[in-house]
């Protein structure tokens, strides 16, 4: 190539090539360097203090002296994906439910029996005679201890949304968050009563159910305890629908319930004490039969962020079993006293 040609190529490069290089350089700058500086700016602005911060960490702190239970390592492994309900029967076996099945486990998690159910169970309860009631969002099923179906009703009134089931005596009680009533059925699956409707003369305020957390448990002497979650109250109804007693504990501190729909789950211990599980500030506590706060089973720091306590139960020894949505396993909390005594 002659010198002249080289010169001309150089001129061409200067006139046309350099602007192209400039354009490419600009693009590279815009894409990488400017983006980087924006991200850096974002990072520095992220570190700024939020003048409108909302901090409830103090409410999650619990005096360690109030915690009277200690978690047993390991817990009970649940051989189910996404368990949805749990209970412990009077024979000290665990029933845990998931999609299309209910498993019976011993207290170490060994599977004893499997029951096929169609759908996703929301709640399970076992009667003293071994009958098992399984409730679904819009259905209810009763099986006997030999796995024979007694009834399976899937058609209920419009807006039905079942959240919990309890068997007491010859009746099956189901809480209906959609219609805000406690439904009582007989062993044929027929509705015999709707309990808890507002009745000023009878002193019944009616159930306030802002979300689908509405629990019922068998009481003593053919009664049931139902949570009135909107007003943080536990109400005791007789088999014929009469309000016998109630107690409430509305307080934002550890001694009460706060927020919408608490307690989400309740449990009656043999000594008459209540175990309560809460959402939002996730914790498990114990109250006396008349509603005085007694102690903490599991403080909020025992649960990962976003944990939901699916269900709670207790065995004959008084240990509390918590079905944890994060681990999908059953966590076991033993009374501290027992442990000291064992030593």
């Amino acid at each position: 190539m002659s010198n002249r040609k080289i010169k001309e190529r150089s001129i061409q490069f200067c006139l046309l090539g350099l602007p192209i290089i400039a354009i490419i350089a600009t693009l590279v700058y815009v894409k990488f360097i400017a983006d980087k500086s924006t991200k850096a700016g974002n990072k520095s602005s992220q570190s700024q203090v939020n003048p409108f911060s909302y901090d409830i960490s103090d409410l999650k702190k619990v005096n360690s002296e109030l915690v009277k239970y200690v978690e047993r390592g390991g817990g009970v492994k649940v051989p189910l994906r996404r368990p949805t309900a749990m209970t412990i029967a009077s024979d000290n076996t665990i029933y845990v439910a998931g999609k299309d099945r209910v498993l019976q486990l011993d207290l170490r998690g060994q599977q004893l029996q499997e029951f096929a159910v169609l759908g996703i169970p929301i709640s399970v309860d076992i009667a003293k005679n071994g009958d098992m009631a399984v409730c679904f969002e819009e259905g209810l099923m009763l099986l006997d201890k030999n796995n024979q179906k007694i009834f399976d009703v899937r058609k209920f009134p419009k807006n039905t949304l079942f959240t919990s089931v309890a068997i007491e005596g010859d009746s099956i009680y189901v809480t209906d968050a959609g219609r805000r009533v406690l439904i009582q059925l007989n062993r044929s699956g027929e509705i015999v009563n709707e309990i808890g409707k507002r009745d000023s003369d009878a002193g019944i305020q009616g159930f306030i159910v802002p979300s689908a957390d509405f629990d019922v448990i068998p009481g003593n002497d053919e009664t049931v305890w139902v949570v009135n979650p909107g007003i943080h109250q536990l109400e005791n109804y007789t088999y014929d629908g009469k309000l016998r007693s109630s107690w409430s504990a509305e307080h934002v501190g550890i001694q009460g319930f706060s927020g919408c729909c608490n307690p989400t789950r309740i449990l009656l211990l043999e000594n008459g004490d209540f175990v309560t599980a809460e959402k939002h500030i996730v914790r498990v506590k114990i109250y006396s039969p008349t509603g005085e706060f007694k102690c903490v089973v599991a403080a909020p720091h025992k649960f990962e962020d976003g944990t939901v306590i699916i269900d709670i139960a207790s065995d004959r020894a008084g240990n509390i079993y918590i079905l944890d949505s994060k681990s999908e396993d059953i966590r076991v909390f033993e009374p501290k006293m027992d442990r000291d005594e064992k030593k």
Partner: peptide, 27 residues
């Protein structure tokens, strides 16, 4: 025991304090 809560948008500054409170304790 029901109360209704409405937002006066002329006063709201979008600070999200109430949003935090509602998600921590409500629906």
């Amino acid at each position: 025991p029901y109360y209704e809560y409405s937002i006066d948008e002329n006063l709201c500054i979008g600070c999200a304090k109430c949003v935090n409170g509602c998600s921590d304790f409500g629906n």
